[in-house]
Nucleic acid binder design. Sequence first.
DNA 1: AATGTAGCCAACCGCCAGCTG
DNA 2: CCAGCTGGCGGTTGGCTACAT
Length: 251
Amino acid sequence: MGRAPCCEKMGMKRGPWTHEEDQFLINYIHLYGHSNWRALPKHAGLLRCGKSCRLRWINYLRPDIKRGNFTPQEEQTIINLHEVLGNRWSAIAAKLPGRTDNEIKNVWHTHLKKRLNKNQNNGGDNKDINGTNETTHKDKESGIVDTTSLQQFANNITTFEISNSNKDDMMSYEDVSALVDESFWPDVVSVDNSSNNNEKKIEDWEGLLDMNNKRFSYDNPKLRSYDMEFWYDKLLNSSPSIEEFSDITQF
DNA sequence: AATGTAGCCAACCGCCAGCTG
DNA sequence: CCAGCTGGCGGTTGGCTACAT
């Protein structure tokens, strides 16, 4: 047997919260805040442990909690982020205002994971939640860059940096995340390479790389090299050719 | 109508990192 | 430097509900 649960040990109440308990907690936090969760229940007149109070507030009582079903957009965001972040629910929740890590975790386990497995079993590996085909990073025929793929690239880069870099040298996850918002990509999303002009393609990718390096690793040469390796690897199977890309990046 | 089963989700547990004295 | 405390996180549980038999 493991150690006894803290709440039980202290003779605290467990299980579902009553409306009255919720009101006690809300009233206390509105008046005094929650600087010390451990001391809070005693001062608020609750027979709960601090951990339980914190969880109840974070997952249910916070005023900015968004209730109700997840929208298809939110679900797609969770799937995309989970693909690159894994089970880092709090990091995923940070991208979905009003949603909690617990809620996202539940949605993932009860809906999204099953749905994805079903899609994959049906041969729908490249389909998104709406059942539409996901576009490739770069259309080999037209050379047109897709915005969804670019956003995915940004997410991949973030993860790559975190998993491969010396933490002392790198930007925090929050710093990087803050850069990847809706306004991040507009100066490259309209790239049009339909003219079959290789030079033009190279310039576009160079601009993309340059922007990426400026935004992600302006003061960080180590990250810059990681970025380059990542992009190099990602582009091996797409145009431009390896030689062309090597020229750009001076590998 | 009674019983069994599956799904959902709020809540709990244990671990870990960071802070503090 | 270290031990104890605290908040935060991801994994798991169990009670409730809906649906099937």
